[in-house]
Computed example of a mutant assay.
Amino acid sequence: MPKNIISIQSQVATGYVGNNIAGFAIQLHGIDLTLLPTVFLSAHTGHPVIFGEAISPALLSDLVKGIGAINIPADAAYLISGFCNLPENIDIIAHTALQYPHLKFVYDPVFGDFHCGGLYFEEEIATYSVNKLLPHAHILTPNHWELEFILKKQFNTIDELKTAVRNHDLLKDKTLILTSANLADTSPDGIEVILIEGDEVTRFNGPKIPLETTGTGDLFTAIITSQLTLNKSLNDAIRIAMNFINHTLAYVQSVNGKELSAAALMKHLHLLK
């Protein structure tokens, strides 16, 4: 069994987003992680004041060279990418995917959402990310807003979604996990995840916890990838991730919390088995 997962995404000094939450979730599965940061910030961007900056391409490139020099990628089966707001670093992620073709590339776009009013950064960078990384991806985990951005069209029904994906030159051949579907028939009291593999579409539903917090998408992708590393089926991985996140958010809400926490994740460790 592979010993680690390589994760290239954001890192913060405090909080649970990007590699902070992904790394913790991966380790809770008993899997080691290889953590490469794209940015290093004082806290996540939902806070009114943050400091920090993007990692320099020279440093990120050196980190990739360094893990290669000690043969770390040989013990991995999956590469995750998340938030990245610098074109040069996007290039490095693409090069890493090409350099290690045995790694299955899980592309989590992380460049926008409905609740924040759209893009987290310039449209040109989001477009660059799609153009550079989507061709190499095996699995995508976009939210509803991000998938509409990739498709360059809105969709409100499952048939519209299926048609749009089928007609997209790149997406039609990918495993697509829509992490927060908001279709006309999606229950307002529920959360829906949609898996599309070729012509096969599977819809997963769970209760919605009325808590707006940052990092759940990063957590979802990390759990999915960890479960696949442990040889679970994709359907089972999605169900486990949804159930774990639901219970974790319910706990955060029950203690009047606003953010994900170590206590919330540890309390539900048994649900990852």
Rank of each mutant, 00 (worst) to 15 (best):
F121R: 13
P207L: 11
A94I: 13
L86H: 10
V193I: 02
H95E: 11
V64F: 00
V201W: 02
F121D: 08
K65G: 15
H102A: 15
D32A: 14
I238T: 02
S61P: 06
I5S: 13
Q253D: 03
D199P: 07
T225D: 11
Y78M: 14
P109T: 02
K132L: 09
Q227P: 01
E200H: 09
I72Y: 04
A250I: 06
V64G: 09
L260G: 10
V12C: 09
D218K: 08
N246D: 07
T34L: 10
T34W: 01
S261T: 15
L265I: 14
Q9Y: 09
H95F: 09
N235D: 02
H47E: 14
G52T: 08
G118E: 06
K65P: 13
D189H: 14
H44S: 05
I21K: 06
N89I: 08
V39I: 15
T141K: 03
S10T: 13
T34C: 10
S42I: 05
I194R: 04
Q11R: 15
A262Q: 03
N167L: 14
T202P: 07
T157V: 11
I224K: 01
I26V: 11
E53T: 12
F105L: 12
A74V: 12
E200W: 00
V193N: 04
N231K: 12
F83H: 11
S56D: 05
T45A: 15
L249G: 04
L269G: 12
L147A: 12
A76D: 06
S56F: 04
L272G: 14
K273A: 06
K172W: 05
L28E: 05
Y128A: 09
P210I: 11
L134E: 01
V17G: 08
V130Y: 11
I209S: 01
